[in-house]
Write a protein that binds this DNA or RNA. Structure first.
Length: 533
RNA sequence: GCCUCAGUAGCUCAGUUGGAUAGAGCAACCGCCUUCUAAGCGGUGGGUCACAGGUUCGAAUCCUGUCUGGGGUACCA
């Protein structure tokens, strides 16, 4: 094993490079990549939950890291606004609307106290459905339409007709509810995502872009022309087993409707074929999926191949699921009346803590999110450790250029140096100017801590490239914690602002490189870098 | 059954292409604020890296098997 000595000159060069860099860690390791990254892609059937939060944090950090590594990335949200889920939601809204009308005594022949929902289980029992129903009834004309609708289904409902036994209500009202409700929910989701600094450039509606546009039929025809479909048992099948899938998959059900897979195949066909603004196409179609979709990959890959695209350009980043811990026990998220939403968590622990928490662990391991710990996690979250390091750097710079009045004597100590002086020094910095950094150290310990810190700063670029290559944002979180720890050690063992101006300047350059790197690392995670805490 | 992810300190988890004495945060204990922010630092205690084989000069890491836990195995989305 080579045991080479790292000279002060090399360390100086590393620091100088960081200070002159436009953005630390920037590299070209992914420069040949044109990536369409689809993630989150929730149904517009309710608020985002914790699980979505993990994909959002993971995906957005990945976008930032890949771009920092030279890739062109388009983040995209696929809106699953088609199919049974939407109908189930509409049905739930309808029931809540009936309930509201009943409470007002507006339903003929029904007492306001009567329990129409007794024994029934709404597909979407959440509180938010009641708000949607209220909004729906306030729409011009909808209240009247509901009452007319009620007259036609009243008897069936009063005799105990189940909500699931469709249709007991009119198609007209169903569509009207969906039209009203889907955009509202989507807008809420979008607002929350923006609030946590997760931005999508493209929003693709399954309903509009695939079903109403005829894209699904076109893709289906292409698959058939290529000879990969057949009819059996009244359904249309895809020969996915020819591509390594366990079995063939249904594309068109016996009732004539399409499966989710069919629309998704059309979607991926479109993504592969899409021509970008500069005339090129994407050479990487990337998705972030939950581990519950794992078995779905072979059939999707098969379909991509069957349509003549390169399956090697298709990539799925799988994330293990998030468990919600309530009273120390795992509980399934979702269909509870009171559920803990992503909004609740963000309100409770803040954007920075939530995002850092979500990406500080490998996506390969299941994440336990302890609700009871959420509040206390505020002070426990390592994100503050990193942010504090950054704030400390900023504080040092403030002290360096500001006069400091002594509280006891009232005397004012002049600033160590002027802002302009500092800027000029940074701009024209050469490695040799950093010599005082190494010469003025008093102990081996100081020297060792300093060396570790600079080596760490120097490895940032490699870390970003590794994180990009392995699609592992948690490398960055880990890195940020490590560097922060190095700095906190150094800070306690070595003073930055000293009576010797040359030493002070050199050490300030170190802090400048550190501050830039910390700010960049935090930015790659979508976390703010506060100047004071 | 098959596919897949995981099992590392009391708890939550890092450990990148195999590399030197396995790390961090939290929790426990002992120190450190007249000096750049103590949301910090130093120290102590705490690990048969699930288990058993194998490959290798060298394994938490690679291979095989076993055990335990999560997820999947739909004409749901």
């Amino acid at each position: 094993y080579l045991n080479f000595k790292i000279t002060d000159a090399l360390l100086s060069e590393a620091l100088t490079g960081i200070i002159h860099a436009e953005a630390p860690g920037k590299n070209n390791s992914q420069a040949d990549q044109r990536i369409l990254l689809e993630y989150v892609s929730a149904n517009p059937t309710g608020p985002l939950h914790i699980g979505h939060g993990r994909w959002a944090a993971l995906g957005d950090s990945l976008v930032r890291i890949l771009r920092h590594s030279g890739a062109v990335v388009t983040p995209e949200f696929y809106i699953n606004d088609f199919g049974f889920q939407m109908e189930k939601l509409a049905l739930s809204v309808w029931w809540r609307a009936v309930e509201l009308l009943k409470q007002e005594g507006a339903l003929p022949g029904v007492s306001p106290d009567a329990d129409l929902l007794a024994g029934r289980e709404l597909p979407y029992p959440g509180e938010f459905v009641i708000e949607l129903a209220q909004a729906y009834l306030q729409e011009a004309g909808q209240r009247q339409a509901m009452l007319e609708d009620w007259a036609s289904v009243q008897e069936a409902v009063l005799q105990g007709g189940e909500p699931s036994s469709l249709p007991i209500w009119s198609e007209r009202i169903k569509q009207r509810i969906i039209e009203l409700v889907a955009p509202r929910i989507l807008a809420d989701q979008r607002q929350l995502l923006e609030d946590i600094h997760v931005h999508f450039e493209v929003w693709t509606s399954e309903k509009k872009a695939l079903h109403e546009s005829g894209a699904v039929e076109r893709t289906l025809k292409q698959l058939a022309d290529n000879g990969f479909t057949y009819e059996s048992e009244g359904a249309l099948w895809f020969r996915s087993s020819e591509f390594g899938d366990e079995k063939d998959r249904v594309l068109r059900k016996t009732d004539g409707s399409y499966t989710y897979l069919t629309a998704d195949i059309a979607y991926h066909d479109e993504k592969f074929s899409r021509v970008r603004e500069d005339g090129t196409r994407y050479n990487r179609i990337m998705n972030i999926w939950g581990a519950d979709h794992h078995g779905y990959i072979p059939r999707m890959r098969g379909a991509i191949q069957a349509l003549g695209h390169d399956p090697n350009q298709f990539e799925v980043v799988l994330g293990q699921l998030v468990n919600l811990l309530v009273d120390g026990e795992r509980s399934r998220m979702g269909k509870r009346r009171k559920m803990l939403t992503l909004r609740d968590v963000v309100d409770e622990v803040g954007v920075d803590a939530t995002r850092f928490w979500m990406v500080s662990k490998s996506a390969d391991s299941a994440l336990d999110f302890d609700v009871d710990l959420a509040a206390s996690a505020t002070s426990e979250n390592p994100v503050f450790y990193v942010q504090y390091a950054h704030a400390r750097c900023c504080s040092i710079f403030r002290n360096a250029v500001e006069p400091s009045p002594n509280v006891d004597t009232g005397e004012v100590t002049p600033p160590y140096l002027q802002v302009e002086e500092l800027d000029k020094l940074a701009r024209s910095l050469t490695p040799s100017a950093l010599a005082p950094l190494f010469n003025a150290l008093e102990s081996d310990k100081e020297k060792a801590v300093l060396k570790t810190l600079i080596l760490h700063l120097d490895s940032f670029e490699d870390t970003v490239a590794d994180a990009a290559r392995l699609r592992a944002p948690h490398f960055i979180a880990q890195y940020a914690m490590d560097v922060a720890a190095n700095f906190h050690s150094f800070y306690n063992v070595c003073r930055i602002l000293t009576p010797d101006p040359e030493v002070t300047k050199a050490r300030l350059m170190l802090i400048l490189a550190l501050r830039k790197t910390l700010a960049q690392a935090l930015d790659l995670l979508g976390v703010s870098a506060p100047e004071r805490m």
